[in-house]
Amino acid sequence: HAATELTPEQAAALKPYDRIVITGRFNAIGDAVSAVSRRADEEGAASFYVVDTSEFGNSGNWRVVADVYKA
């Protein structure tokens, strides 16, 4: 099962156990969220919340930071 994305309210009520950072070329924010979901799932997380997204220069590469939560 894939890790689910939390709302800001849900994330605020929970304590993350880790923070992950992924970088890559994403065509849309949805693609980045899917990549975070896969990584969170690999780490055994039940859910995640994207904290920050930023573009690296003009290369089209993105850096996505997310907190991950157990259950």
Rank of each mutant, 00 (worst) to 15 (best):
residue 5 E to S: 10
residue 43 E to R: 08
residue 66 A to E: 02
residue 6 L to P: 03
residue 11 A to R: 05
residue 6 L to F: 04
residue 7 T to F: 08
residue 30 G to A: 14
residue 51 V to G: 00
residue 44 G to S: 04
residue 58 N to F: 10
residue 1 H to G: 14
residue 5 E to I: 08
residue 30 G to Q: 14
residue 24 G to E: 01
residue 41 D to I: 13
residue 2 A to C: 14
residue 7 T to G: 06
residue 12 A to S: 11
residue 10 Q to K: 06
residue 28 A to W: 09
residue 64 V to C: 05
residue 40 A to W: 03
residue 54 S to Q: 15
residue 12 A to E: 08
residue 70 K to Y: 11
residue 66 A to I: 12
residue 9 E to V: 09
residue 67 D to F: 14
residue 23 T to I: 15
residue 10 Q to C: 14
residue 10 Q to S: 05
residue 13 A to F: 13
residue 37 S to W: 07
residue 15 K to V: 14
residue 22 I to D: 01
residue 56 F to Q: 10
residue 60 G to E: 07
residue 17 Y to H: 04
residue 46 A to I: 10
residue 55 E to F: 14
residue 10 Q to R: 07
residue 1 H to K: 10
residue 11 A to Y: 05
residue 11 A to C: 07
residue 65 V to T: 09
residue 12 A to C: 11
residue 5 E to L: 10
residue 20 I to C: 04
residue 17 Y to W: 07
residue 23 T to Y: 15
residue 67 D to H: 06
residue 53 T to D: 02
residue 37 S to C: 08
residue 49 Y to E: 01
residue 50 V to A: 00
residue 57 G to C: 10
residue 53 T to V: 15
residue 8 P to I: 10
residue 12 A to Y: 07
residue 53 T to P: 01
residue 27 N to M: 09
residue 21 V to A: 03
residue 43 E to P: 01
residue 43 E to Q: 12
residue 41 D to W: 15
residue 63 R to M: 12
residue 24 G to T: 03
residue 5 E to R: 13
residue 46 A to K: 09
residue 21 V to I: 12
residue 26 F to R: 00
residue 47 S to V: 04
residue 47 S to Q: 10
residue 50 V to P: 02
residue 18 D to Y: 09
residue 56 F to W: 11
residue 46 A to L: 08
residue 27 N to F: 08
residue 27 N to S: 12
residue 22 I to Q: 01
residue 61 N to I: 15
residue 69 Y to I: 03
residue 70 K to R: 11
residue 55 E to Q: 13
residue 60 G to A: 05
residue 46 A to T: 13
residue 31 D to W: 12
residue 48 F to M: 03
residue 17 Y to I: 04
residue 44 G to P: 04
residue 58 N to M: 11
residue 33 V to N: 03
residue 69 Y to M: 00
residue 46 A to P: 05
residue 50 V to S: 01
residue 13 A to I: 13
residue 56 F to S: 09
residue 7 T to H: 04
residue 50 V to I: 15
residue 37 S to E: 06
residue 45 A to Y: 15
residue 11 A to W: 05
residue 20 I to P: 00
residue 8 P to N: 08
residue 30 G to E: 15
residue 60 G to M: 04
residue 40 A to L: 06
residue 20 I to N: 00
residue 59 S to E: 13
residue 70 K to N: 07
residue 44 G to T: 04
residue 1 H to A: 10
residue 36 V to A: 08
residue 40 A to P: 04
residue 35 A to N: 03
residue 63 R to W: 07
residue 39 R to C: 10
residue 32 A to V: 12
residue 30 G to V: 11
residue 25 R to W: 14
residue 2 A to R: 14
